[in-house]
Design a protein around this nucleic acid. Structure first.
Length: 513
RNA sequence: GGGCCUGUAGCUCAGCUAGGUAGAGCAUCUGACUUUUAAUCAGGUGGUCGGGGGUUCGAAUCCCCUCAGGCCCGCCA
């Protein structure tokens, strides 16, 4: 059984109306791994829905988190903003409301493109609405117990003056320590390092809980029943462990069913970090992997399995595998060990699968065709020469368009050199030997009367090479050199059939004379 | 030091919760087809299931130990 179905079944045994929570702290550039959390949550959502559960997925944006340090990609002046909540720091590019919006927007676009069905919630608004106030109150009143729990779980020493709540200093805009003795619901005083002092109202956005308290507080607020999170939180003594005890012993709530997931690595390069940026960003992955394929990539393996995101040929392999699972889904006949992958295909569609199998253009073929035309219409025209595209629905055209865009992006960024070619890179006549010219002349005449489909073309290519007295290999190389300036390329018969006959003949003749 | 996760074919992974003759895809090899060239189809090769021990009639699967890799035990999220 697919892992998402196992989780869904376990959840529904306890809770018929489960709520799944997930989220992000958009303090820096978002990487591929951040997508895994959202996709994992969405998979559980659609699996529960599939079993008839009334399920909701919320996506929490931790917009009140402080900027921890000035990351290398930030301008110098951001040094001044360290310690301030990211929803109150200016946008680096000036186009968004604030820092948090700037970094989370591409991610929200990605969620949309991946069709993650969730409700977006901004944490700073929860604070402003006073949603955290009961938990802040409990945390402050039961502070000794909180400290005891944290000590026991983490095995660390914690000072007795530890505060679970940090007021936001009105003078400098940064989080600071409160004067614990002054607490009287709903107010607590503070005296900031900057020299400023004042009073924070815990029912307003005047401060925030520290992470280890904030997380369980959210569980209590929403009644979260399932939550995927990075395995760093899942480790013994980590924030899930402490959160579990705090939500039960302090907030009188329950911890969600944990779905820890492993991190995503760029193949051969290593762990990616939000804070330092990385060679493949989340947006890169979105841009070069069709959304349904990206969903599938994360769903085909168990969450606790590390994923190497291969931005090279792996992108093509994954798309091909996706298409293969699509065929197996509709045609049946999968083996036991493909069962989970086929199910992953269906979950990657959010369990809303088309009535019948959509027409498939092999992804590797698309890689060739995309390089033969500048625009989508051109690609469609070329595909139309060998495939029947007349019956495509609007949605199918959209999917194809998206795939073409992804292939283009991939070719421009991460594709290895040996899959790239350009039909404008043909060589000049002087670079060809006499026998090669003779071959081209013979072939041109033969092709003139040849049916313009792959097999007859291939036959002519080989036959005329023999006639011209050169090896088949040499013949192929000559044609590739003339067409794309390389000695190898896409399967020739189909490649030529994809092109316009007149243009091919013109090209051959222009160099054979 | 303590804990969690991972280790199955060259590569990516199923299979482990209910032990019963090791599975897929990709890669590779061979062959359809008078075509060696990155879109076809059919077959084949390929694994002491990280290692050792135990339980069992029988272990990839359960238990113990061990090795390797990753991660955690922050008043960071």
């Amino acid at each position: 059984m697919h892992w998402a179905d196992v989780i869904a079944r376990d959840i529904l045994e306890k809770d018929k109306n489960p709520l799944i929570a997930t989220g992000i702290s958009p303090t820096g550039i978002i990487h591929v791994g951040s997508l895994r959390e959202a996709i994992t949550g969405e998979a559980v959502r659609s699996a529960i829905k599939d079993l008839g559960g009334n399920v909701r997925l919320i996506y929490l944006i931790d917009s009140l988190d402080p900027l921890r340090k000035r990351y290398p990609f930030l301008p110098e002046e951001y040094e001044n903003y360290v310690g301030m909540p990211i929803c109150q720091i200016p946008c680096p590019c000036g186009k968004h409301d604030n820092y948090a919006h700037h970094f989370v927007q591409p991610f929200l676009d990605a969620l949309k493109s991946l069709k993650v069905d969730c409700e977006i919630i901004w944490t700073h608004e929860l604070y402003a609405q006073g949603k955290f106030a009961p938990m802040i109150d409990l945390a402050l009143r039961k502070r000794p117990q909180v400290i005891k729990i944290l000590k026991e779980v983490t095995g660390r020493d914690l000072n007795d003056d530890f505060s679970p709540y940090n007021p936001l200093c009105r003078s400098c805009g940064r989080f600071t320590q409160p004067l614990l003795d002054t607490y009287e619901y709903p107010r607590i005083d503070y005296c900031c390092k900057c020299g400023g002092s004042g009073t924070a109202d815990i029912t307003k956005m005047d401060g925030k809980l520290v992470w280890r308290l904030e997380w369980p507080a959210k569980w209590k607020i929403f009644g979260t029943s399932v939550e995927p999170f990075g395995k760093d939180h899942a480790a013994a003594g980590g924030s899930y462990d402490s959160g579990k005890r705090i939500v039960e012993e302090i907030f009188d709530g329950k911890a969600p069913y944990p779905v820890p997931y492993e991190f995503v690595q760029l193949k051969g390069v290593g762990q990616m970090h939000k804070s330092t940026g990385s060679p493949v960003t989340g947006m890169d992955a979105i841009n070069m992997t069709p959304p349904e394929v990206l969903n599938y990539l994360f769903l085909r393996v168990n969450p606790q399995k590390a994923i190497d995101y291969d931005s090279g040929m792996g992108v093509l392999d994954m798309a091909d595998e996706y298409d293969r699972m699509e065929r197996l889904f509709f045609e049946g006949g999968c083996t036991d060990c493909e069962e989970n992958s086929v199910r992953a295909y269906s979950i990657a569609q959010h369990n809303v699968v088309p009535e019948e199998i959509p027409p498939q253009i092999p992804y590797r073929h698309l890689v060739n065709v995309v390089q033969m035309s500048d625009c989508f219409e051109g690609v469609m025209e070329i595909l139309g020469r060998t495939e029947n595209l007349k019956d495509l629905s609007g949605e199918e055209v959209q999917r194809l368009r998206k795939r073409v865009e992804c292939v283009k992006f991939w070719l421009d960024t991460f594709a290895p050199e040996d899959v790239k070619f350009s039909v404008s890179d043909g060589i000049r006549p002087e670079e060809l030997s006499e026998e090669e010219k003779k071959y081209l002349a013979l072939l041109s005449d033969a092709l003139d009367t040849t049916e313009w489909t792959p097999d007859p073309i291939s036959n002519a290519v080989v036959e005329k090479a023999k006639e011209a007295g050169i090896s088949t290999k040499k013949g192929f190389q000559t044609l590739y050199r003339v067409l794309i300036g390389r000695t190898s390329g896409p399967r020739l018969g189909a490649f030529l059939a994809d092109m316009e006959k007149a243009k091919v003949l013109e090209r051959f003749r222009s160099v054979s004379l």
